[in-house]
């Protein structure tokens, strides 16, 4: 009599899916932690230039973004084709920047405020005039840490 009996043919046993929820939850938590919701939709043409001397902005919650570019086709009827500044989710004049900066600062705990970066996402086609105006406003409101957003050159 052999110890290794040939198994009677029962077909393949079903794969246990009991650990599936655990695996999925693990992935879920990873993405929940890694996610940062985009809080505004971009309303301007925004193709940032390429550069090599890049720095990564680490703390996403300390980054305040200002978009500059030509309004997208669906907005040109109202806002024209000249480059515009977008603060949050609306077009704005440059003189609204100090208020925008203050509003962002209020959300950040006091000790972290000096670490706030303003990221300028400027379309490559835009001329420097509007960028200089924005820079002047930033200087006036005391927000001196600035980042010219750019992609890595291939």
């Amino acid at each position: 009599m052999s110890k290794f009996k040939k198994k009677t043919d029962k077909g393949l046993p079903a794969v246990s899916t009991a650990s599936l929820p655990d695996i999925v939850f693990m992935l879920l938590f990873f993405f929940m932690v890694a996610t940062k919701m985009r809080d505004s939709s971009i309303m301007v043409k925004n193709v940032v230039p390429e550069a090599t001397e890049l720095v990564k902005l680490e703390h996403k919650n300390l980054v305040n973004t200002i978009y500059i570019g030509k309004p997208l086709p669906q907005y040109t009827a109202v806002y024209g084709t000249a480059p515009q500044v977008q603060l949050g989710d609306k077009f704005a004049n440059t003189d609204e920047i100090p208020f925008f900066i203050e509003k962002f600062k209020a959300k950040i705990p006091e000790p972290q405020r000096p670490m706030i970066f303003t990221s300028l996402k400027v379309d490559g086609e835009v001329t420097m005039g509007i960028v200089s105006d924005v820079k002047t406003e930033l200087r006036k409101s005391g927000q001196l840490k600035l980042n010219y957003s750019a992609k890595r050159k291939q």
């Binding site: 890049l54 970066f117 840490k145 010219y148």
Partner: peptide, 8 residues
């Protein structure tokens, strides 16, 4: 976000 950082 990546970019060139400057201090005004």
């Amino acid at each position: 976000d990546t970019g060139i950082t400057v201090k005004l």
